[in-house]
Design a protein around this nucleic acid. Structure first.
Ligand SMILES: [Zn+2]
Ligand SMILES: [Zn+2]
Ligand SMILES: [Zn+2]
Ligand SMILES: [Zn+2]
Lengths: 165, 165
DNA sequence: ATTCTAGATGTTATATTATAACATAACATT
DNA sequence: AATGTTATGTTATAATATAACATCTAGAAT
């Protein structure tokens, strides 16, 4: 089963992001209902904060915003929510940035491949069978059994490149 | 120019690591001489500590060992040395582990692809043109210009898989 | 409806990773 | 020796993340 998905494509800055946010929350609710776990208010709020944009968000930035509506919030509040959301495939951690992005495809558990713009910080995500397959092939050559993958690519998105002219 | 190198292959636990260490230090000295920069005692010592094994090493573990011979050492001592070594291609940071591994190919500046064993922590490094090329191809599809790449693959090396039987 | 319980949250403290800022020392060039 | 540059020393603190234990609460079991 070698799917080749664009989980989250680059979108123009002008896109109607309200729709991305709304869709992500709906997908999260559906997922949690289906699996029989609870998307509590804190968890939903953290997810909403992460989906404020397509940029990776830092844990302590989430904490700051969370405190505004819920003064009892502390680091564990955020890290617990993040752990839950990551376990459920609702959020990925960008290891090279110590930051978190939403994932709109929780049903299908995966580790994506991320493309991150240095200028606008937009993160696009693929779940690409070709990449996975090539890495498998390389690994196989020296008898390595893959169990987890991190692919994070930085550079400049089309829109930002246009602006550089 | 699409090279396809195995920078640092998996080696049996029994290999004569003294040779790896020695070769790495010689390569580092040669590189620094050639480029006209200084591999100072601190920098060399940090590099040696990183090359104690093929496992990623944590900054504060380096610091602890450094203190044993040089009591004036502090976090900046280590992080400065690490920065120097990374800039010169003598060390790579494994982002997903916040740890550092030696690189035996400093001449050729690159971002490698890393395969890391969960059991023995051995890190193998490729500088693989095929992988780079595929990522380029994917990026091109949505007009993304790559500037930096992180590929870190976790799993089980051949030797450790054999032991699991 | 009441009790029980697992899961979720609150709270305090601390561990881990990394950098800022400024002072001093070592080294190279003139 | 005087100068500029690079490296190191030193102190403090920022940024990221987890441990440990107390308390609460929604929902299951009775
Ligand atoms: Zn959007
Ligand atoms: Zn951009
Ligand atoms: Zn070795
Ligand atoms: Zn192994």
């Amino acid at each position: 089963m070698s799917k080749n998905k664009v989980i989250s494509p680059f979108k123009p800055a002008s896109h109607k992001h309200q729709d991305c946010l709304r869709a992500a929350i709906v997908a999260a609710k559906n997922h949690c209902d289906a699996v029989g776990i609870r998307l509590t208010p804190i968890r939903q709020r953290v997810l909403e904060l992460i989906w404020q944009d397509h940029e990776p968000v830092k844990a302590y930035d989430i904490l700051d915003k969370l405190k505004q509506s819920k003064s009892s919030s502390a680091p564990p509040t955020v890290y617990r929510a993040l752990e839950f959301l990551q376990d459920e495939g609702l959020v990925h951690k960008i290891e090279s940035l110590n930051a978190y992005v939403g994932c709109s495809d929780p049903k299908n558990i995966h580790k994506g491949q991320f493309f991150i713009c240095h200028d606008c910080s937009f993160v696009a995500e693929l779940d690409d069978g070709e990449i996975r397959h090539l890495l498998q092939k390389k690994a196989k050559r020296f008898g390595f059994e893959i169990n987890d993958e991190m692919v994070e690519i930085k550079g400049y998105c089309q829109e930002c490149r246009g602006l550089k002219e």
